[in-house]
């Protein structure tokens, strides 16, 4: 008796457990899929720091998701599309093993639908990894531009383009906000205390850029990073890409034909009855 009861209880417990595991099994992938993805890119913007290896780990995973070898001053990686979540960026010297303690590391929280640049900035002696949030949308028909001051030689740099000051007296490692500009050819000038640099860029509408001011031999070098690029002109509405040769075609309307047939039959019937009726009184009259 008790054995049978126990067996029944065990069976019930197994079913409940099975159901719970099954539900969890469905719930877990659904939850991670709904988290979405974000974008992450890595940059080396420290003038006197030699080339490094940069590792990107997703939180809690011992193996690096990406490893960038020999990243030197001015190099910026393409964006990596990653599931939203926490990541660790670590820098090691190129000779160091992947298991060694990194020179520098930081964690980044990637939110769904957002983009980030993780940049090694500052002098080699005080190198830090900074997480910059990158914009992903621009006002319709306009351009967004920001400036990163990555020149160590010049302590204050003013960056201007076509009469618009993009950044005034920017100190080393300063990052400006994005500014709205009109698309087209842009002459950018960076002016420090003793050095300067100038360069022309073509900026496309519906796009977002970062200008980086860097040390070069005896002058300032301006490089342009493409953050996000859109279509130069956004077409209006949908696209007409078909002529209907394979589409379902409804038959012609049936109701008018049905109506006409009924009316015709009704008229004929009426006339027929009329004909027959009038014949009889005619016979009587005779």
């Amino acid at each position: 008796m008790t054995q049978a009861r126990n067996a029944g209880r065990l069976a019930r417990l197994t079913v409940i457990l099975g159901l719970t595991v099954g539900l969890l099994g469905f719930a877990i992938p659904a939850a991670s899929a709904s988290k979405g993805t974000g974008w992450l890119r890595l940059a080396h913007l420290s003038p006197n720091t030699p080339a490094v290896d940069v590792y990107l780990y997703s939180f809690g995973h011992p193996n690096a998701r990406i490893v960038l070898r020999h990243v030197s001053y001015g190099m910026v990686s393409p964006y990596e599309q990653v599931p939203a979540g926490e990541y660790t960026v670590a820098m090691r010297t190129p000779t160091a093993s992947a298991r060694s303690r990194p020179v520098l590391s930081t964690t980044v929280n990637v939110a769904s639908g957002h983009a980030y640049t993780v940049a090694g900035m500052g002098p080699a002696a005080g190198l830090t990894l900074r997480v910059l949030r990158d914009r992903l949308s621009a006002p319709r028909g306009k351009v967004l531009v920001r400036v990163i001051q990555a020149s160590m030689h010049q302590s204050a740099v003013t960056v201007a383009a076509a009469g618009t000051v993009l950044g005034r007296d920017l100190k080393f490692t300063a990052v400006t906000r994005y500014q709205v500009l009109s698309p087209g050819e842009l002459a950018v000038r960076a002016t420090g205390e003793s050095e300067h640099g100038a360069r022309r860029f073509r900026l496309a509408a519906n796009s977002i850029y970062t200008l980086v001011v860097m040390d070069d031999s005896g002058h300032l070098k301006i490089t342009r990073l493409e953050d996000s690029i859109g279509s130069q002109v956004m077409p209006e509405g949908g696209a007409q890409m078909g002529f209907g040769g394979t589409a379902a075609r409804p038959g012609g309307p049936l109701l008018p034909w049905l109506g006409a047939a009924a009316a015709g039959l009704l008229a004929a019937a009426g006339a027929f009855i009329g004909l027959r009726r009038r014949r009889r009184p005619a016979l009587h009259a005779r």
Binding site: A248, R249, G251, G252, L258, A260, A261, G264, A268
Partner: peptide
Amino acid sequence: AAAVLACGLLAAGVSVAGLAVASQSGRTA
């Protein structure tokens, strides 16, 4: 009355033919 009878029958005939054509002209994708 004879004319109405004839016209009515003709109209009914034409309509039935139209009905047949209309129901045949449709097609699926």
